[in-house]
């Protein structure tokens, strides 16, 4: 179990360090945008806008209503899906930036963004889907590679 967890955490490193450095940029930018903007607007974090009146780890009141409108299983458990989606954006963004449990949070972010693309933005056309699609591609990439050399996963799992 522990060795499986370690293998899941351990990143794939590029042949040269500068390649890992370049691949750090989309991870940090996307993580920052997710946690500072998209996520914190609907999930209570210390840097959520004060106007939003959100308590710590609380999901905004309007988000479960939006999620329920997707229908099906989302209508059955709107608060669960809304909280999970907002958590994966707001908290997942931090973990993505730090490169901590990168694969796990990339998968969560990828799932959340796929829901946003297909359930929320599909009728609004390709242009409106682009932000969520952008995060899908980034999260998909890091769900395969992990954090690379410049992340906490690397430090935690590197062989001594």
């Amino acid at each position: 179990m522990i060795s499986y967890f370690k293998r899941f955490t351990s990143p794939i490193c590029m042949p040269y360090w500068y390649q890992d450095l370049l691949l750090l940029i989309p991870r940090v930018v996307c993580g920052y945008l997710l946690t500072s903007n998209f996520g914190s607007a609907k999930f209570g974090l210390p840097w959520s806008p004060a106007d939003a009146n959100l308590h710590f780890f609380e999901v905004a009141f309007w988000f479960p209503n939006d999620v329920a409108e997707y229908g099906g299983i989302f209508k059955l458990f709107p608060a669960f899906f809304a909280w999970s989606g907002a958590f994966s954006e707001a908290v997942g963004g931090i973990f993505l930036m730090l490169g901590l449990q990168t694969r796990l949070f990339s998968i969560l972010i990828c799932c959340t963004m796929l829901v946003a693309v297909f359930m929320q933005q599909w009728q609004n056309g390709l242009w409106n889907m682009l932000p969520a699609l952008g995060f899908v591609w980034v999260a998909l990439f890091y769900s395969v590679t992990g954090s690379g050399r410049f992340g906490l996963d690397y430090l935690l799992t590197k062989q001594k």
Binding site: N53, F57, F61, A82, W83
Partner: peptide
């Protein structure tokens, strides 16, 4: 946890 997620984690209105 699921009960809390369903009812307790949403901003009060």
């Amino acid at each position: 946890f699921l009960m809390w997620m369903q009812f307790g984690c949403v901003q009060k209105t």
